[in-house]
Each structure stands twice: as structure tokens, then as C-alpha cells.
């Protein structure tokens, strides 16, 4: 996992509420046994027609979306299936952060573990972002701030330990393994 501190990007907006992980990556692409290369299947059923040609009306196929690292999505993004293939596909496509007014629990957890930053903002900020696609924003994880054009700074909350992991590019398994003596004591006390 790459350390993550500052993301500067124009946004791509997908305003629909309740975008579920079946849309982010349909189930038929889950027969893989690795994490890599899923970006080409990101939003496959919205992005391509039946013949596999790009749908010109879909935002990710439009020239202004090229190179964007920040996806602004409608409320309750990432609901549904627990498939970690969803953040893997978003990262492989090039996104490094998702901003919404609400992000589903399992998707949020999975994102944090892979270096995709889930940013939950208040309704007013969210409405502004939805209404201003292509806005230049800066997300600074070292200060927990999202900066909108005109130097408008918005604070966002992020779980402290996940934040530490993202800033330093370390995963949680090392920390969990450092607790093995506690785990063994727990098992012994329970006769487990």
C-alpha cells in the first residue's frame, strides 16, 4: 500500500444514491484469484454497451474524467455485497478517494485497507460537490481537510488507526500480529 497524504484532483461526479458494489464491479468478474487489473471492469454494465463498446453518455467515458483521482458519489455509496473487488477496481482505474454524504460500512472498511480514502462530508458540502463536477479539490489526510475552490476548507473525520496506516502506508496485519501474546492469553482464559 502506497502512503497517502495529499490528493489534488478535479472531481468526477456520479450523483445517483445507493450505488451498490454490484454496479461498481458486477459478479461475473469475481471469478479472479488476484486483485490486479480490475479497473477495466469498473462499472462495466454502465460503461460499455452489449457489444463491449464504451457508452459515450457514461461519465467515466467522457474526456473531462480522464486522470481524475476523486470520485464524488451520491449518498450510501458502496452498499450491498462485501466484495473487496470494488475498491480494488476503483484503485486500479486510478481513483484514490471517494467523497459522499454517507458511505456503506463494509465498503468503507475495505477501502481503508487498500489506500482508497473514503471521505464523508456534510450534506451541504456534498450538494455543492454534486452540483459542481470537475471542481479542483485537495484532500489532505495529514490535516483531515478537504479544500474546495476558493480556499473553502472542510474538516472530515476518519478512524484514527486507519488514518495512521494510510499516512504511513502500513497495513493492519503487522499490528494485529504484535498482539499474538494477548490473543493466546485470551484463548487460554476461555479454554478455547
Amino acid at each position: 500500500m502506497q502512503p497517502l497524504q495529499v490528493i489534488r484532483s478535479k472531481t468526477v461526479v456520479m450523483a445517483s444514491t445507493n450505488i451498490d458494489t454490484d454496479q461498481i464491479i458486477p459478479a461475473r468478474f469475481l471469478t479472479v484469484t488476484t486483485k490486479e487489473g480490475l479497473g477495466k471492469e469498473l462499472f462495466a454494465d454502465w460503461r460499455y454497451d452489449a457489444q463491449g463498446n464504451p457508452n459515450p453518455n457514461f461519465v467515466l467515458n467522457q474526456p473531462q474524467s480522464k486522470g481524475s483521482q476523486v470520485l464524488v458519489a451520491g449518498k450510501n455509496f458502496g452498499c450491498g455485497s462485501s466484495r473487496e473487488h470494488a475498491p480494488w477496481a476503483l484503485l486500479d482505474f486510478g481513483f484514490r478517494a471517494v467523497i459522499s454524504s454517507e458511505i456503506a460500512d463494509i465498503f468503507k472498511n475495505n477501502s481503508l485497507k487498500n489506500g482508497l480514502l473514503p471521505v464523508v462530508v456534510d450534506e451541504a458540502t456534498h450538494a455543492w460537490l454534486i452540483g459542481n463536477p470537475g471542481a479542483d479539490v485537495t484532500i489532505d489526510l495529514s490535516t483531515n481537510t478537504l479544500t474546495l475552490p476558493g480556499e473553502r476548507r472542510i474538516a472530515f473525520a476518519i478512524e484514527a488507526f486507519a488514518r495512521y496506516g494510510l499516512l504511513n502506508g502500513v497495513d493492519e496485519l503487522g499490528y494485529l500480529r504484535s498482539k499474538l501474546a494477548d490473543i493466546e492469553r485470551y484463548e487460554a482464559a476461555r479454554g478455547w
Binding site: S82, E84, N110, K113, D171, L176, R177, K179, I183
Partner: peptide
């Protein structure tokens, strides 16, 4: 509760997860 594949790995390796109480 459901977890992602990274957490599946955590449980395989330690039988534990890092969790905030909902």
C-alpha cells in the same frame, strides 16, 4: 458480519479483527 478479503486474511492469520464498536 461480513468482511472483505483483507480482513479474511487477518482472521486466517490471527483469528482476530480490528474493529470499532458499532
Amino acid at each position: 458480519f461480513g468482511i472483505g478479503s483483507t480482513e479474511v486474511g487477518h482472521v486466517f492469520a490471527t483469528q482476530c479483527l480490528l474493529q470499532r464498536k458499532p
